[in-house]
Design a protein around this nucleic acid. Structure first.
Lengths: 257, 257
DNA sequence: GAACATTTGTCCGTATGTATC
DNA sequence: CGATACATACGGACAAATGTT
């Protein structure tokens, strides 16, 4: 593979070795972007690593800095890198692939990605169901529901935060068990509820609000994916309804029919 | 139904008729928010309509303007209304439910929602497949692919914009037929390709970029849902791969396993 | 472009009820 | 019981954005 300049600093005479060919019908910036993308995909630069400064990269590719910046802009647009004035340009961590199907559980998703899952319990309380919760759980308005607020992390990095509601009668002390184990899946299993499946997943997105910025450690203006879900038991009765906000920069939700 | 003030202007003496009860154990702002939400749900105020100004609503409910603003903030958080300084507070249109399954087609989705679908063709050209397109379509890099850029609208409101790639050999003149009919589904049918299904849908989100702001008529800082998809023919060969940006304020993607 | 009215957004401060230690 | 912290509610003033003249 035609790697990008790996000897920018070491060998001043090699500036032209990686120069991009001109007159090929492909613009210079596109060629550069594709080379850098291939390098990142190949692991030439690791996530979190800082790229050489723009001037060095530009001279290594034999182009003007503006041309190089056009290539970096394309990569930033694609979400592969992130530039900060005064700090440098960094390779972003690839988003966590988050498969969603009838029976996916958070802990399995994260474990499959080679990361360590953790559900950080924030708050639980019993409250009467408002109109929305009652509709989604198919219970009379005002019935007691258990409301659990939590944050999900992978390797200590917050992935999502949100609120889930359970019919309180069906899940006695679920909150206590969850708080102890850190896994909702296991807490439900303790109650003998293992066989539930996703009935519907609804998705939208919006800029993060103040709470999400804090809980997910994301910058102002970044997006969250808002995911609403209904899980049902084998008999078709809704078990939980919830709404979670995902740090959009860190996950890619994957649906396979 | 205990409606919210409908005679704010008409009858100056009715200020207290809709006043919220105090000392009930439910905060004033929550009572107000629930009343307004019920009114919007009941169609008392139509999508796009402007609510009375804050001062009027406050006096109608018999509370301070700050208390009313707390209620409006809750509704805005829930996505029911949107306020702009100097203009007023408006009821937002409910998002278009956009079901995604193995065989959903854009035209069917929008028609089912009682709206009129339209794919506005922007540009088509044949180009050699780059690394990403080649991988997704499972063809050798450099093979000719047809790249189609388009915008999808419902009732004249832009819903999504994006780019789709087809193996050029499989779809001769697809671009011309699409440009003529405005429906990709029909254009493919003309070529005898009717039976394809979604193999995978990947989703993330980010703030809209300049192009999306223009093509989708959305404000700076708003979010887009970025949806990548692979459609395959019955024999399993990829037919199209594409990446679309949805105006997150206008759609809710719905997945049913 | 300037002046103006309208409307939302933000800040100051104060008082009160409620839950907690 | 008091001390304390917090959310709720109110009052006033001004800034910022928008639309109109």
């Amino acid at each position: 593979m035609a790697g990008s300049p790996e000897n920018v600093r070491a060998d001043g005479h090699s500036q032209m070795t990686d120069a991009v060919p001109r007159g090929t019908g492909v613009t210079l910036w596109r060629q550069i972007a594709e080379r850098l993308e291939a390098d990142i995909a190949a692991g030439r630069w690791q996530p979190g690593e800082r790229l050489p400064v723009e001037a060095e990269l530009a001279s290594a590719f034999g182009v003007n800095r503006h041309t190089l910046r056009r290539a970096l802009a394309a990569l930033a647009e694609a979400g592969l890198i992130e530039a900060t004035a005064g700090r440098g340009t960094f390779v972003k961590a690839p988003p966590l692939r988050y498969p969603i199907g009838p029976r996916t559980r958070f802990s399995e998703i994260v474990t499959a990605g080679g990361r360590w899952p953790f559900g950080r319990f924030l708050e639980a309380r019993v409250e009467p169901a408002d109109a929305e919760v009652a509709r989604e759980l198919d219970i009379p308005q005002g019935t007691d529901v258990l409301r659990i607020e939590s944050i999900h992390e992978a390797d200590g990095v917050p992935i999502s935060c949100g609120i889930a509601w359970f019919a309180a009668a069906r899940c006695p002390d679920l909150d206590l068990i969850y708080a102890a184990t850190g896994s909702l899946t296991r807490a439900l299993a303790t109650l003998g509820i293992e066989d539930f499946r996703r009935r519907e997943t609804r998705i939208t997105a919006r800029p993060a609000n103040a709470r999400e910025m804090e809980q997910l450690s994301i910058a102002a203006g970044r997006s969250v994916i808002v995911l609403e879900r209904v899980d049902v038991e084998p008999n078709g009765r809704p078990l939980q309804w919830g709404r979670s906000s995902f740090a959009a920069d860190r996950v890619q939700l994957v649906f396979k029919p």
